[in-house]
Design a binder for these strands. Structure first.
Length: 259
DNA sequence: ATTGAGACCTGTCGGC
DNA sequence: TGCCGACAGGTCTCAA
């Protein structure tokens, strides 16, 4: 998409979780994608019009990219749950498929991205230089919720989901049930827990990204997520992975080595 | 203001 | 085999 122009935008339903913005296809067609970016779990396409195409895959969304020949051969035919199709000037086609329709397709006018309710106030990118234990500790000051719930809060740190929140806490040896404020530094003092957690977050994300690039290595993906009843994989730990529900979401952890 | 519960959808899986 | 309920990787809204 980057550097290409939208030649045709096919919208096959009125919206996803919410209706598509007004004149969605018309505001995209004939525009060029200046840059593609990611912020947290949102995909952003900066357009030559100055607007930003904001996309989110929700829980079940995916993008299907077809090179020129394949798109031509298919014509206007669409698969089940193919909701939006972008025909690009390169000849390639990009189709957004989302069975559950929890995804997002939105257009934000020039300069308003900073005021977008989800993106504007989002926390730091964990893989960017600004993110460390101190940043995490700061974000947890006064938080009366569990550490696990805090990690899912996109204002605390951007882009962590339910799986990697559990995985990061396990690597850091921190209980998901701890009060979030217990890793917060009381003004400047360094807290080992926050530093361990920040390092663990970066580690699980880096490894996940690396694994995704090599499908053959996708076998044993998670150490705790969906491993209820399994022996803990922390060296020398004899614990058993437990599943609990926090703020309506499943959490997996080892009560023996996560304190 | 912060927090948790419920809603939004369809697909899949385990139990009967 | 088929039906049914429970559950799923996210975010928004609402009410306490």
């Amino acid at each position: 998409m980057e550097g290409a122009r939208f030649t045709r935008v096919i919208v096959r339903r009125a919206g996803l979780r919410r209706p598509f913005p007004a004149d969605f296809a018309a505001r995209l067609e004939r525009r060029t994608v200046r840059a593609l970016r990611r912020r947290g779990k949102f995909l952003l396409a900066e357009l030559s019009s100055g607007e930003t195409l904001v996309m989110h895959l929700g829980m079940s969304g995916s993008m299907r990219i077809e090179p020129s020949a394949a798109a031509k051969g298919r014509g206007d035919a669409a698969g089940r749950h193919d909701h939006v199709e972008f025909r690009m000037s390169s000849g390639a086609s990009v189709t957004f498929n989302d069975p559950r329709r929890f995804g997002v397709m939105d257009l934000v006018p020039p300069g308003l991205l900073a005021r977008h309710p989800a993106i504007g106030a989002m926390g730091p990118e964990p893989l960017e230089p600004g993110f460390d234990g101190a940043a995490l500790a700061r974000a947890c000051v006064g938080k009366r919720t569990s550490l696990k719930a805090a990690l899912l809060d996109q204002h605390v740190v951007a882009g962590l989901g339910n799986i990697y929140a559990s995985e990061a806490l396990h690597r850091a040896g921190l209980s998901p049930r701890r009060l979030a404020s217990t890793v917060a530094a009381p003004s400047g003092a360094s807290r080992p827990a926050a530093h361990r957690l920040a390092a663990a977050i970066r580690q699980v994300l880096r490894e996940a990204i690396a694994r995704k690039a090599r499908p053959a290595y996708r076998m044993s993906r998670f150490r705790v997520y969906d491993h209820e009843g399994d022996r803990c994989r922390t060296p020398r730990c004899q614990g058993t992975i437990r599943r609990v529900v926090q703020a309506g979401r499943s959490t997996f952890y080892c009560p023996d080595c996560q304190k």
